[in-house]
Design a protein around this nucleic acid. Structure first.
Lengths: 227, 227
DNA sequence: TCAAAAGTGTTCGTATTACACCCATGA
DNA sequence: TCATGGGTGTAATACGAACACTTTTGA
């Protein structure tokens, strides 16, 4: 490598992952009980440093795999955080990602081993450094995504009821949605297929299970610009 | 500073700025004729390294000020680019920003001194490294912003006609818009005030000038989530 | 007089919203 | 039987899209 840039400084570059999951009608976050200084014993996002042969995307996937055992996870960059003193130990630029995982599918033993724990978005513990801000930015990104297309395949089990899907949306946007209107809107998108099977655990009458039609990539809440 | 992270590598951290301007009905980009290696003599975005006492935001503002003489510019992070070999010289993580500036207002002598040049988005030169991708991501961000709220105060002169505003939107989205519908939509937002003055240079009849009402922050192309 | 933009109005179809209402069933 | 969610229907409204039409005026 050359030395053309050598009058400039180098910094550590890390990734932090905002890992969303969904369980029992609650949007949850996978947090880490830090086993190392600085801020040992406090809660933080899952993170790690970017290696020499890695992009930050690759590093984030590696970390996610190490924690959950999962590959092929939905993962998207949020933004970089670079305040000089954001990490109390040294100058670290953090590139933040958010991921969507299905809690029913991940390796929960591995998660426990790693000192990780699912927390409801409704009652998060105090987070280290600027991790709180990272979570907020990540949630905003998730909301934009959920407006642009029907999310659910990344967070729900293979088959789910419309109640479960609605509860997911209510959790993401922290609002209440009208049953009938939600149903009509979602079904009009033609991305769900009704199964011949009912879930009878969540209602007396029983609700049909649905699944996502593979390959159906219609964007629901249409955002084509036509002013 | 401690040495808790010392088994990890450090990298250069730079910012690159996608600087949008608007002139003669064209969306333009301020590009730089590189005076240094690597890629000397090629065209690139405006960039620079992040200093020890700076956040990337601060660094981006510094660079923008150095080039254009302007402060108080609209500036927003796009994302970080971190492929190990994205810069041919050394490992450099780049945090990309986009800025909106009024071409009529910037210091054009300074720009020329810096070897910078305004290029129409319709015919950009070949850019170094991954700068082409940065421009694309920045344009997408600008489009999202322009959908969410009426942009124009950052790019147009203080007073402008609805034709000029429409041409700006057509340039941002690279589509044609209906005169009447655009007019109705924009005026319904109640963020523009008509002046008692007409522009007679762009049409026989003359079009009223408008200006943005200060403090009016209504979002035009409403995106409230109500599924 | 005519082209080009300014500015206004109308029509039509669809999406959104706020509901009302009946169904099914286990506790 | 009744509370709870499942599922369907409707009416009022808002909005987008397409487009017709009049006005103004310099070349």
């Amino acid at each position: 490598m050359g030395d053309k840039y050598n009058r400039h400084s180098k910094y550590f570059v890390a990734v932090d992952c905002v890992i969303f999951g969904y369980e029992d009608g609650d949007l949850k976050l996978l947090l880490y009980h830090r086993g190392f200084e600085p801020a040992k014993g406090k809660w933080s996002l899952m993170g790690g440093f970017v290696g020499e042969e890695e992009s930050s995307d690759t590093a984030a996937r590696r970390i996610l795999h190490n924690i959950t055992g999962l590959d092929d996870i939905f993962l998207e960059q949020v933004q970089a955080f670079s305040e000089p003193k954001r990490d109390s130990e040294d100058r670290v630029v953090s590139i933040t990602y958010y991921a969507l995982i299905r809690i029913d599918q991940h390796n929960s033993d591995k998660v426990r081993e790693n000192g990780a724990h699912w927390w409801s978005m409704k009652s998060l513990p105090h987070l280290v450094f600027d991790h709180q801000e990272m979570v907020m930015k990540a949630l905003e990104k998730l909301q934009v995504k959920a407006e642009m297309e029907l999310v659910g395949s990344e967070l729900l089990p293979d088959k789910f009821t419309l109640l479960q899907l609605r509860r997911l949306y209510e959790a993401i946007f922290q609002i209440e949605l009208d049953t009938g209107n939600f149903r009509k809107k979602v079904l009009s998108l033609k991305v769900l297929q009704r199964l011949d099977e009912k879930n009878t655990t969540e209602s007396r009458r029983g609700a049909y299970y649905f699944k996502f039609i593979e390959g159906a990539k219609a964007r629901p809440f249409d955002r084509i610009v036509k002013i």
